[in-house]
Design a protein around this nucleic acid. Sequence first.
DNA 1: CCGCATCCGCCTAGATACTG
DNA 2: CAGTATCTAGGCGGATGCGG
Lengths: 141, 141
Amino acid sequence: MTSFLGTELAQRGVAPDCVQTIELVRDVLARVGDKWTLLTITVLASGPLRFTALHEQVAGISQRMLSQTLRALTRDGLVTRTAYPEVPPRVEYALTPLGRSLSAAVDGLVHWVRSHQSDIVRNRDEFDRAPGANTATLPRL
Amino acid sequence: MTSFLGTELAQRGVAPDCVQTIELVRDVLARVGDKWTLLTITVLASGPLRFTALHEQVAGISQRMLSQTLRALTRDGLVTRTAYPEVPPRVEYALTPLGRSLSAAVDGLVHWVRSHQSDIVRNRDEFDRAPGANTATLPRL
DNA sequence: CCGCATCCGCCTAGATACTG
DNA sequence: CAGTATCTAGGCGGATGCGG
């Protein structure tokens, strides 16, 4: 048990393995949901790519963030990093089977969003048009 | 089209509605994946709760973050906020039908994590035990 | 030349303290 | 009880350096 959340849940009598699952779920969702991971996985879903190609395809990403994202994904075993000792150097990134299965799972959410995007957009419009409309104090994403 | 990403994708000839979907998907995933949203939705899935009850059940969350998270979810039409003009004030939060359907979609990812958590943990251990092990430069989550 | 790691600076997320 | 104002640590982008 590592986190405050974990101890809290444990004190409330939640089963340990369930607690572990909840932590890991949040952890993995945080990874998937962060600013660049989803796009990177999506781009890699169409095939292996080298660093520079990814840097172009993921559009607004900085080299630093691409590097970090790829290392995190590699650490989780979702992506493989293959360096070819050539001149000039070439490094290829590809989804592992695990990465592809995650990509498939994410597709579920993607489809949910596709199905309900109009609802969400409408709800946001409606909310923002309301009297108070505290959009200023909303999280930035 | 609002974002840099959007214009980039558009310049690369990606269909506009597809671009919009990609943006919104990332947007919603960022919301679901952020530090507190998933837990909040999960807790609310078992029934309506008032602010303080949520503050206790979500464990480590601060009032400010709970406030922001709930407002964002309300804006997206995933949660309803009902204020009863009493003394002392009482505010109840509940999942909307849309929120419940999202909750169901998220369950897909949760199940993926459950199925593969051992793989991920093992991969991380293995990675961290490797020679270089640049865990220092990983994103914090 | 390509793939990074490092340093620097802004700016936002998040914890702490306060108000209607 | 249900939030908002204040402060700080750290995420993130840009520039630079360097090994291969």
